[in-house]
Design a protein around this nucleic acid. Structure first.
Lengths: 127, 127
DNA sequence: CGGTATCCTCCGGGATACTG
DNA sequence: CAGTATCCCGGAGGATACCG
């Protein structure tokens, strides 16, 4: 039997380490654009400027940085075609797709609860 | 006829508005401590300093701010007992519990994928 | 087309001290 | 015990210009 806290890399993890680990991963989807980009890549492979338009008002710099971060974490693949003009395709990896499902759940929750949350905020601020 | 600002339930929102809405809600759980605090409140009601210890190394200031944000969004209730010394209890609302479930899924995903992600990062950085 | 390079601003959040 | 009040800094991220 495997101890729950020893599953990651074989070393023992404290509750503290566990939270750090989760936070480290959540920072990826906690940033300003990752969730948006992941959602846009959900249906199909996309090219850079295609993503840029779909994710407006993202800046070129931030799209580039976001994609690099997602690629670094093995959530997105980057495929370069050596044509002219250049063409680069981005797509979700299998790991990225498992995250997409959760992110869609989260997005659904956000939509379902948006009205209630906005109402709560108004009530809270009124005081 | 429907006024745009009244279509918060998702019926006639532009793709842009939909993303803004989701981002607005995700910023709550995207900040540094909300997810941690929500998880700690998952099992039972907690007092302020109890949460503080459970969420180390959070600062007093940030716990206070995080709880206020969660309360504002109707995710957490704050109950003051007028005793000495003072006592304040925090608990998840029903809405907070629905979010807790998703957050737990997310935390589970983070744990399950932590090793793979760390490996991907190392491989990516090696290049 | 698909990016970098630079510069600059804003604010999330830590440290510390004080309070009802 | 359960908070506020200040001060301050690093870094996320926007604007803009340039590049292969």
């Amino acid at each position: 039997m495997t101890h729950p806290l020893m599953e990651v890399d074989g070393a023992g993890l404290s509750e503290q380490d566990r939270r750090d680990l989760i936070r480290g991963v959540l920072e990826r989807i906690g940033d300003k654009w990752s969730v948006v980009v992941i959602c846009q890549l959900g249906d199909s492979t996309r090219r850079f400027n295609e993503l840029r338009r779909m994710s407006e008002p993202i800046t070129q710099r931030m799209l580039s940085a976001t994609l690099r971060g997602l690629e670094r974490d093995g959530l997105v693949t980057r495929t370069v075609f050596d044509t002219k003009p250049p063409r680069v395709d981005y797509a979700l990896t299998p790991r990225g797709h498992t995250l997409l499902e959760i992110v869609r759940t989260l997005a659904g929750w956000a939509e379902d609860n948006a009205a209630g949350i906005l109402h709560s905020r108004t009530a809270f601020d009124a005081r």
